[in-house]
């Protein structure tokens, strides 16, 4: 039974669209699971999502906001596994809830960056000519900008806060996606199947969004996963400088910053949230590397 299911899934000549889709998903999942790098990355990212969702349960009844000035800066103990911060708040609970801020930033940046990059890139690559020249020149200009500094200036002008940090990061990170989508589009644009869709009378927008965009998605997603670490690090950097999530919201960058003054005596205050940032961006890097091996035929 399992043997026939296996052959059905791995079939090179699928009999229906459904079989083709399920088969390709199965093959992708299989190659991720058999790639140790990607698997470790996937586990870390899954844990992050798990942490974000179940933070109230995992924090063992400690609130991330409840202050206890009598027990401030306490060393790790059975009650507070990772110790307490300068206001006596439980660092374990704050680190767990901090996953939510990170997830929110990552999700929001992706939602802004991918559509902009895909639209600009595919339009430029498909239409070519002066549209391409103008769009790519603008992309190049944005690509040459220093990312953190510009995000800093934006966040300073808009006022500190998680939304503005997201806007600032998104504004400086879309060009890479436009570049990728454009080069993918240029390789697809003149292939026979696009020509035949043109002959069938499809409009430019239909060709772009129904036929070209889906084919660009995989490389954009790989790039996004690889970029995630950079986005998380920039967001944490903004948080560290006080331009990200505002207190008392638990955010890892800001938590490291609050442990800065006591680093020589109470090392755990800064160490734990920093370690969380490190592990999560490591996870995204590993997953991205693995996904690239799976999806990018050139690196095989």
């Amino acid at each position: 039974m399992s043997d026939t299911l296996g052959t059905w899934l791995m079939s090179e000549t699928p009999m229906s669209r459904r079989q083709a889709v399920i088969g390709s998903v199965y093959r992708a999942v299989r190659s991720i699971i058999f790639n140790p790098t990607a698997l470790i990355g996937l586990i870390i990212v899954t844990l992050l999502i798990f942490m974000g969702i179940f933070a109230p349960l995992l924090s063992l009844g400690n609130s991330p906001l409840a202050q206890n000035l009598a027990g401030r800066l306490a060393a790790p103990s059975a009650d507070h596994w990772f110790g307490t911060d300068e206001l006596g708040r439980d660092i374990l609970a704050r680190t767990l809830y901090g996953a939510r801020a990170t997830l929110a930033i990552v999700a929001l940046v992706s939602v802004i960056v991918v559509p902009i990059g895909l639209t600009v890139g595919t339009v430029a690559g498909y239409l070519g000519g002066w549209v391409d020249a103008v769009l790519m020149r603008i992309t190049d200009i944005f690509l040459a900008f220093p990312r953190l500094i510009l995000a800093l200036a934006f966040a300073a002008a808009l006022g500190p806060g998680i939304e503005n940090a997201v806007i600032a990061i998104a504004l400086t990170s879309w060009p890479a996606y436009a570049r990728i989508a454009r080069s993918e589009t240029m390789t697809i644009a003149h292939s026979d199947f696009i020509q035949s869709v043109v002959l069938q009378g499809a409009s430019t927008w239909r060709i772009l969004f129904r036929h070209i965009v889906p084919l660009c998605l995989s490389s954009v997603i790989v790039r996004l996963t690889l970029d995630m670490a950079g986005i998380i690090l920039t967001a944490a950097g903004l948080g560290f400088l006080g331009l990200g999530a505002q207190p008392p919201t638990p955010e890892w960058g800001a938590m490291v910053s609050s442990g800065r003054d006591v680093i020589l005596d109470q090392w755990w205050v800064a160490t734990i949230p920093g370690l969380a940032i490190f592990i999560v961006s490591l996870g995204f890097n590993l997953l991205g590397d693995g996904l690239r091996d799976v999806f990018d035929p050139k690196s095989r």
């Binding site: 950097g237 680093i263 940032i277």
Partner: peptide, 21 residues
Amino acid sequence: LFGYSVPVFWLGLIGLFVFYG
């Protein structure tokens, strides 16, 4: 890979703690 993943401000603090403190 570690260099790509570690937050620079945190590594700085840990560096201060270990090598200076």
